[in-house]
Amino acid sequence: MFKKMNKHFYKIFFLSFTAAVILSFTSFSQWPFMNEVFIFFPEDEQVFFREAKTELDLLSKKDDDEYTLKWSFASETNKPAFLRKDMSILFDNGVFAGARKQSLKDQLFIEEAGTFEGEDSGRYNAVTFHHAELHYPEDIYKSKHTWSKDQLYVIDSPLTPLYSFKEAETEEDAQSKKILDSIIDQQMGYVLEGLLEEFQISAEDYHLFTLLDLPDYLNTPLPGLTEKETFAVLGRLWEGLYRYYILGINTFTEESYSPEGNSIPHILLHKEGTHLLVLYETKDGSRQQLLQMILKEEPASDQDD
């Protein structure tokens, strides 16, 4: 029956079912890493992050075209959590280059550091999801999360020694930044255009973001949503991103693939606040889509004394 359906209707139906599975994390496939998932629970308002940071730095030069970056992240909560998990994603010129995770139990502070081998001039972006899972008596589970990010430009030119910067301080820096940003933005725009066409989506119906924009909404609600709704949306979003985007699971076939080369995810929040879409393209050009329905917060009712 499904094979005879319109391709896009089938995808929407399948994704709606998949979204429900993502939110509940019941068994859906033979995925062997279910114990590694990030699970969203209601917000624990007694917990906050004292610190959350991501850092990218040029560590050393290997030869004329290659160099090593230091990629680190850390966070600290005000009270120990049953489970602390931090996951960081690195993008090299707008595509997925790798991910690092640290997971500890009954800890306040968590950190992780590693290296990445780069070559030629480029822009590197890292975004980290910092997560705390808390358990209380009577099977009460809560969570807290925050985000951090960093950006680094590495300039490898025959006219100057290899160097890096985060913010342009000179005219040369500004020009290099402009060129790299323009190339990456142009490619991201091209990818988004293909995704919208593939899934027959009208951009006018959505607020458009990329994954790199989401840390900016730590203290500001997403358009049309409350703070609590924003917290829940971003927490549930990460459940799906980890399973499908980072681990490399095809959103339509459930088949595994190497996620290296995935485009930066585009996040589309419907202007009516009913759902959001996560769109991205794999290295081989396969277009992927995740759907998350948004549970609206019930308005407080006015009652007479």
Score class of each variant (00 low, 15 high):
26 T>K: 14
179 I>R: 11
209 F>N: 05
260 E>Y: 13
251 T>K: 04
38 F>W: 01
217 Y>C: 03
7 K>P: 01
28 F>N: 08
80 P>L: 07
204 E>S: 07
277 L>D: 01
13 F>C: 09
301 S>F: 02
48 F>E: 08
215 P>A: 07
296 K>C: 03
87 M>D: 12
30 Q>V: 06
177 K>C: 03
166 K>F: 02
158 P>K: 11
152 L>T: 00
12 I>E: 01
203 A>I: 14
18 T>G: 04
251 T>Y: 04
212 L>C: 02
121 S>D: 01
286 S>H: 07
163 Y>N: 03
135 H>E: 15
42 P>I: 14
91 F>A: 07
152 L>C: 01
127 V>T: 13
288 Q>T: 11
266 H>G: 00
142 K>V: 05
170 T>Q: 10
81 A>V: 09
233 V>S: 03
187 Q>S: 07
286 S>L: 06
205 D>M: 04
28 F>G: 03
84 R>V: 00
148 S>K: 06
113 A>I: 09
6 N>Q: 08
84 R>I: 01
178 K>Q: 13
154 V>H: 00
99 A>V: 13
36 E>K: 14
204 E>V: 07
220 T>E: 07
296 K>L: 10
251 T>L: 02
248 G>P: 09
67 Y>E: 08
275 H>N: 12
6 N>A: 06
14 F>H: 12
144 K>W: 09
142 K>F: 05
273 G>A: 05
155 I>G: 00
146 T>V: 14
90 L>Q: 13
147 W>R: 10
7 K>R: 10
180 L>W: 01
37 V>G: 10
304 D>P: 02
14 F>R: 08
299 P>K: 11
44 D>S: 14
265 P>D: 03
138 E>L: 07
72 S>H: 13
255 E>I: 04
119 E>C: 01
33 F>V: 08
145 H>Y: 14
2 F>E: 14
4 K>R: 12
285 G>P: 09
176 S>K: 10
46 Q>F: 05
174 A>R: 15
285 G>C: 12
173 D>Q: 12
276 L>G: 00
49 F>I: 09
82 F>T: 15
179 I>Q: 10
126 A>G: 05
11 K>W: 06
191 V>F: 06
268 L>H: 04
94 G>I: 00
11 K>F: 06
236 R>M: 03
7 K>S: 04
107 Q>S: 15
188 M>T: 12
179 I>D: 08
59 L>C: 04
292 Q>I: 00
235 G>V: 05
28 F>C: 09
275 H>M: 09
40 F>I: 07
107 Q>W: 04
197 E>A: 12
118 G>Q: 02
225 L>I: 11
47 V>I: 14
258 S>G: 02
112 E>G: 04
305 D>P: 06
199 F>M: 10
248 G>A: 10
39 I>S: 01
167 E>P: 02
23 L>Q: 14
102 Q>T: 15
156 D>K: 15
255 E>N: 12
281 E>K: 10
130 H>C: 06
103 S>Y: 04
110 I>M: 14
14 F>W: 12
119 E>A: 11
263 S>K: 03
166 K>D: 13
35 N>G: 02
277 L>N: 01
289 Q>M: 12
241 L>P: 00
305 D>W: 15
94 G>F: 00
274 T>Q: 11
